[in-house]
């Protein structure tokens, strides 16, 4: 009898195992359902979409040019004609902010994309191969992490020279450690899954395993990290431009506009107010969308 019982149990668990392998529920559907329930995340997402559209279409809808100098109307306070007022050269601040949107979003997406392209492979290689390679890569990452915050980007820009492209590169390098670390962790976790061992035993090549089995497991944390990282990339880039190390005048980049505004903070505070507010809105949108993504992808963290 006892034997029978044990047999029954094993049958049962085998069936269960099979069921698990055959019928893998789509995680994305589930994820989308959870995301849809998170109102804040949706607001963030729609804001990002809206701002992206504005950054492309906006300039065509405006009657003014961001570099139209109008000395007579300089320092005009916000009015019906100049919604956000004009700056020290009489340029329309609203127009400049709309034109500047694409630089902000461009630096944000661009640097994170570049950072991911460099960081993700590093993380996968470190996690997948382990041992000395892992050790070496992680020590390199440690070195990059030793320069806190904006400092690394600042050092890089001081070598490369100040321009928006160089800022993008600098911020991308500053993003590498984050991606590499997260991806390494997920790779290690994915490698531990039994089926990966089984597949390797069947003679799959490393490359195939990485692309077919590791990468899908790594993608969701990468997406969450990327979204949240865009927020801080935008802040860092704006900071560099504010310091005069990034976008150069007369480019209507928001950080550079704040740098201009700083000189007139005593007489015309609104010049600095609006570009900063624009940065806050964009960064806020990415932050709440990223938070929502993270909650949706990791329901355990949802409190």
């Amino acid at each position: 009898m006892a034997n029978q019982n044990i047999e029954q149990n094993t049958d049962h668990s085998e069936v269960e195992l099979q069921a698990m392998n055959v019928k893998k529920p789509s995680p994305w559907k589930d994820f989308y359902k959870r995301l849809k329930r998170n109102k804040a995340a949706l607001i963030g997402f729609y804001t990002i979409v809206f701002l992206s559209i504005v950054s492309i279409v906006g300039p065509f809808l405006l009657s003014m040019d961001p570099s139209d100098v109008d000395v007579i109307n300089k320092f005009s306070r916000p009015s019906a004609e100049h919604w956000f007022g004009t700056d020290h050269m009489g340029r329309d601040i609203f127009t400049r902010i709309v034109y500047g949107m694409k630089y902000t979003l461009g630096v944000g997406f661009g640097s994170v994309f570049l950072g991911a392209i460099m960081g993700v492979p590093l993380g996968i290689v470190a996690g997948y191969y382990g041992g000395r390679i892992d050790n070496f890569i992680m020590r390199l990452i440690d070195i990059l992490l030793a320069f806190p915050g904006i400092l690394l980007a600042l050092a890089i820009v001081s070598i490369l020279g100040g321009s928006l492209v160089n800022v993008t590169i600098a911020v991308a390098i500053y993003a590498i450690p984050g991606f590499a670390r997260i991806v390494r962790g997920s790779t290690l976790a994915a490698k531990k899954l039994e089926y990966v061992d089984a597949i390797r035993a069947l003679g799959s090549s490393d490359l195939r395993i990485i692309f077919k089995h590791i990468l899908p497991n790594v993608s969701s944390p990468v997406i969450v990290n990327a979204t949240l990282y865009i927020a801080s990339a935008i802040l860092t880039a704006a900071g560099l431009s504010f310091l005069g190390m990034g976008a150069q005048p007369p480019m209507p980049e928001w950080g550079a506009m704040l740098n201009d505004g700083r000189d007139y903070i005593f007489d015309a505070g609104y010049i600095a107010f609006f570009p900063g507010m624009a940065i806050v809105i964009v960064v806020l949108a990415f932050n709440i969308f990223g938070d929502g993504l993270r909650d949706a992808l990791d329901p355990k963290l949802k409190n």
Binding site: L235, F242, L258, G261, R262, G276, V283
Partner: peptide, 9 residues
């Protein structure tokens, strides 16, 4: 989400 230099200003 605030740039600290803007908050400072």
């Amino acid at each position: 989400s605030m740039p600290n230099f803007w908050l400072g200003l």
